[in-house]
Design a protein around this nucleic acid. Structure first.
Lengths: 191, 191
DNA sequence: GAGAATCTTGCACAAACGTCCAAGTTTCTC
DNA sequence: GAGAAACTTGGACGTTTGTGCAAGATTCTC
């Protein structure tokens, strides 16, 4: 994709690195961030422990890469909802469906997300996450305060659902998001 | 406080346990949840390692107790704001001041908070946190959806401030919270 | 004061971890 | 094909961790 002639050595390496990264995400889902070790990830990927240390010098590198990958996946889902005729409804459905399918992946996302609070190197990635959300909101309102409220609501709703064990349905989520979006201007509306 | 005649042995024990718990919170602030080990906490408390294993059988017990303590402190601050003439403004000031004083304690709170997502035993404590927030909101609006939006906004604003490194001021926070509180009814208002 | 309950501590053990290295393999360049 | 570059792997090292235990000190009960 990037260059016409690929180095077969590097290509194989990147494929392997991706395998390890996916394994790392599964480990985070299963055992939390604390469970991420070189050995555990390599074992999950069905590879020798040395390979994990080769591709990720420190355990921190591994977590950083995992967050980036997690945010990428999130951004993709977000973009899909953004392009829908009713972004708010689409997002509400997406979030509810994710929670219903299983909490572990969502927990993993937020554990990695929170990791950015301690690592300045991750702030740009976290910011991207919020920006994508704001882009969705701006399709429905011009009020910047409403955009902030909307973004905060999304993270707050998910976080609270996770920690309290509640399972809000799509309509409940949508109602809250719609309210946050309403803002001072009565209707930004879809054009 | 609880009984008239206290057992000196148990009293000493509880004092020591409290010391360890405070040390544990400092460790979480400094090194994150991952840094919490029996030895690290004992060292932080200036006590022999064995004492940590005596009072907290597993490392999980320690974290659970730490979360409960953290939520207790949060609830106290929340109650203070709730009793203010303008709860929303008071809460906004409290949150902004906390962020300004230092992010580490807030990060620690959320790391522990998120811990509840994996431990059913902690859900009640996390729920209490949300309930206290909802109680504050209900002093300003009767709309249950607005209450939910308000609670979500508080967690979302703090979480996003932490992960993006932003430092919202009191007025910015207040504006967002006020919007979430507004709801469909134009004014619940303070009586 | 005698005996029981609780607290307190040092120590030793196995397991798991990050890290490093050196030898071997594949792939590319020329 | 020869040499360089990148990948791959197994193994060893020292450190840290959780855990359990046994002996001692403190406090309460009678």
């Amino acid at each position: 994709m990037t260059a016409e002639a690929v180095d077969g050595r590097r290509a194989k390496g990147e494929r392997r690195r991706a395998l390890l990264l996916e394994a790392a995400l599964r480990v985070v889902e299963r055992d939390g961030v604390a469970g991420v070790t070189h050995r555990a990830v390599a074992k999950e990927a069905g590879q020798p422990p040395s390979s994990a240390t080769y591709y990720f010098e420190s355990i921190d590198d591994l977590l950083v890469a995992a967050l980036v990958r997690s945010v990428d996946a999130y951004a993709a889902r977000l973009r899909e909802a953004t392009e829908s005729p009713d972004p708010v409804a689409a997002l509400a459905e997406t979030l509810a469906a994710e929670l219903a399918r299983g909490r572990a992946p969502v927990i993993a996302e937020y554990e990695l997300y929170l990791l950015a609070a301690r690592r300045p190197a991750l702030r740009a990635t976290a910011q991207r996450c919020v920006d994508d959300l704001a882009a969705l909101a701006r399709r429905c309102t011009g009020d910047p305060v409403a955009v902030k409220a909307f973004c905060a609501c999304v993270d707050g709703l998910l976080l609270q659902a996770l920690v309290t064990g509640a399972s809000p349905d799509a309509s409940g989520i949508e109602a809250v998001l719609r309210l946050a979006m309403a803002g001072s201007e009565p209707a930004g509306g879809v054009p």
